[in-house]
Design a binder for these strands. Structure first.
Lengths: 223, 223
DNA sequence: ATACTTTTTTAGATTAATCTAAATTTATAT
DNA sequence: ATATAAATTTAGATTAATCTAAAAAAGTAT
């Protein structure tokens, strides 16, 4: 009768998936507590529960790893989140910095029919408004080779592909200086002392951006 | 930080609104327990809580009445429910018998911006796929004068305006015999012994429908 | 290798929403 | 008008998700 995972459990699982870099490394209790804005004691309780449901494996004092079953469940939630974000921007004219909170709610709506119909309605999009890939029905993700702007060398250029930080403040800043998904970036110079960069956006604006900003911008490099 | 009403409280309030015929009569503990598929004891606890929040008034042993504040909150949820149903049918090609359960989930998404943008996207619809009026932003409802088909006299005709029973089974039955919102119904004869009726649908099909069915079909009478 | 620090877990409480069983109040039928 | 029935409330428990404070384990630095 009840879904296999509660809303709270889904949120924990999503956090574990992201923090483990899609399942590549273990996640500590404290990292999870930080991420969920909960206390470590609460996390310990929850990971016991998730472990008993088989979506993670857990060894006392040594963090958790997501299981295949858990990975699939996490990807279903992520698929929903990204499809809803796409809907909000493409159909309802939300700005890209306004969608995250609403999508955090919508991602928990349980209806396979709804999500497949939404996917069709949107034309089977491959990426969300922040450039993140949308997992398909079977949890497959089409990963595109991309690098942090901070890693690009002076004289090279690339196309903005996605953002690592989806916070409204950061996205509003990007919009303000003219950076959006698909924009062309030419790297003029990289300041060694603080990692900031001088770049040209779409052959027009020449701006300086901080190391922090450049680390959260992912580009597809071009020859 | 938290919404004023929890998801569960919203559902109770909606049930109270509907059971009280939009605030016209008091609702008993048992009626509410039945409707919510809960035990009376649980309802007693909940109505104390709702009462302390000022959305209903409650006198021990004498049922509850919805307050103005409660009515507004209930109408906000109903507005969302009906807008989402409209979205599902008009945009995602759901059938009218498939939308209720999903809308029961979607109606609790909290985002005034979302609901106003959705309303625009749908072209400010006045009724949902079952013919029920959609309250506007201020909780105003455009009520249309309509009667139960069971009350119509032989020889008269009317346009199907809404259904009182939104269950998949009933709606599928209606679709099967060719009744949809907007269909023309001519009443041929009303059988006094069991209240069943012989009707003609859209000048084509001549069918018999039970008293129960005719009581759950609302029509706008025509001269 | 031992002592100190950090991380994690355990123990015990709390809140929301539910339940069962018992007690109480209201309604009904002779 | 009183007994019986029906409806409602109270009392006490339970589960999910959280917390604080204390205990235990793991990591680190000399």
């Amino acid at each position: 009768m009840h879904p296999i995972l509660s809303l709270v459990e889904e949120n924990y699982l999503k956090a574990i998936y992201h923090l483990s870099d899609a399942g590549k490394s273990a996640v500590s209790t404290n990292a999870l507590a930080d991420n969920m804005n909960n206390k470590a004691a609460s996390v310990t309780d929850m990971i016991k529960k998730l472990s008993s449901k088989g979506v993670i494996s857990y060894e006392k004092y040594h963090g958790v790893n997501i299981s295949e079953k858990g990975r699939r469940a996490a990807l279903r939630v992520i698929r929903k989140h990204r499809l809803w974000e796409t809907f909000l921007v493409d159909k309802l004219n939300f700005n890209w910095d306004e969608v995250h909170e609403v999508a955090e709610q919508l991602e928990h709506i349980e209806s396979p029919l709804l999500i497949e119909k939404l996917d069709s309605f949107l034309g089977h999009p491959k990426v969300d408004p922040h450039g993140h890939p949308i997992p398909d029905k079977d949890g497959k993700i089409h990963e595109v080779k991309q690098v942090q702007l901070s890693e690009a060398k002076a004289g090279t250029n690339g196309i903005v592909h996605s953002v690592n930080d989806g916070s409204p403040k950061f996205l509003q800043y990007l919009s303000k200086i003219g950076i959006r998904i698909g924009a062309r970036i030419d790297i003029v110079e990289r300041m060694e002392f603080d990692g900031s960069m001088e770049i040209i956006i779409d052959d027009k604006e020449r701006v300086f951006i901080s190391r922090q900003a450049s680390e959260n911008l992912l580009i597809r490099e071009r020859p």
